[in-house]
């Protein structure tokens, strides 16, 4: 446990030193610029647009961090052979890998927290500046705590994507791992369509194949409740609980597979 914690800390420190702060700054600047512009252009819609844009940016920036840092975590160490230094310390390969994972999850958490704070700050000021009459017309209050539901699910999705990136990077090149992870992310968001493939075609093998793909590929659509939250539609607690449980199981399987593959690899 201590070894995993030490490894996680190292990853976190590296990301702080390297790229991650920049993405946060870029995000904050974009957010503020966009919201000012938009609140000038539209009437009444501005809160929804800020929320839409903010949550979308949050998940996209998070995705970029998860994929690009996630893929680099292991492949860089293996390619540059710094892995020799670590794996000859009293640290099992499983601990090495889990430390990497935990470190990136920590990085993501801090990152999301900062971006969430930035988003709420923009909403708070826009709210202050909006006239009373306009406020009455909103479907949801500007500073709406329910947005946190969407953000928690985004975080869970990003944890899953990180596990995917880590999994692919234990046995493929960085390029392949990136492409496969991004590909699965896209496919994962359209995955639910596969379940109902039977209504579109009626060839049994194709339907069967679609079913298999449906169960293997992560199902990411349920993680996206941005639309509901922005429009003030209630998101059932049960939906959130099921989705989080799904994420936990999927991540557990991915990490187990990663540890198994990584544990048998030759570092030549």
């Amino acid at each position: 446990m201590r070894q995993i914690w030490l490894g996680a800390n190292a990853v976190f420190r590296e990301s702080v030193r390297d790229r991650v702060p920049y993405s946060i700054v870029v995000f904050a600047v974009l957010m503020i610029a966009a919201s000012y512009l938009i609140s000038q252009l539209t009437a009444g819609q501005d809160m929804k647009i800020i929320k839409d844009l903010g949550l979308a940016a949050l998940s996209i920036f998070g995705l970029l961090i998860a994929v690009f840092i996630g893929v680099g975590l292991v492949t860089k160490e293996v390619e540059k052979r710094s892995v020799y230094g670590l794996l000859t310390k009293p640290l099992s390969r499983a601990e090495f890998l889990l430390g990497k994972y935990a470190g990136l999850v920590m990085t993501l958490a801090v990152n999301l927290a900062v971006m969430t704070a930035a988003l709420y700050a923009v909403l708070f000021f826009s709210n202050l500046m909006a006239p009373e009459g306009l406020r009455q017309s909103w479907e949801a209050p500007a500073v709406d705590p329910r947005m946190l539901t969407a953000i928690v699910l985004i975080f869970a999705e990003l944890m899953l994507v990180t596990a995917l990136a880590l999994f692919f990077s234990t046995f493929t090149s960085p390029l392949w791992a990136t492409l496969l992870t991004l590909g699965l992310w896209v496919a994962g968001h359209f995955n639910s369509d596969l379940r109902n493939f039977g209504t579109v075609v009626d060839s049994a093998p194709v339907i069967w194949l679609a079913r298999v793909i449906y169960y293997v590929i992560p199902n990411l659509a349920p993680f996206d409740v941005k639309g509901e939250v922005v429009h003030g539609i209630h998101v059932a607690a049960r939906h959130v609980a099921y989705t989080l449980a799904y994420a936990a199981v999927y991540i557990g399987l991915l990490l187990t597979a990663s540890v198994t593959i990584f544990g048998r690899r030759d570092f030549k």
């Binding site: 540059k80 052979r81 230094g85 000859t88 640290l91």
Partner: peptide, 14 residues
């Protein structure tokens, strides 16, 4: 591993 040390050929660290 607590009791051994290893220096790789042309090592690289962070």
């Amino acid at each position: 591993r607590r009791r051994i040390g290893f220096l790789a050929e042309n090592p690289y660290y962070y």
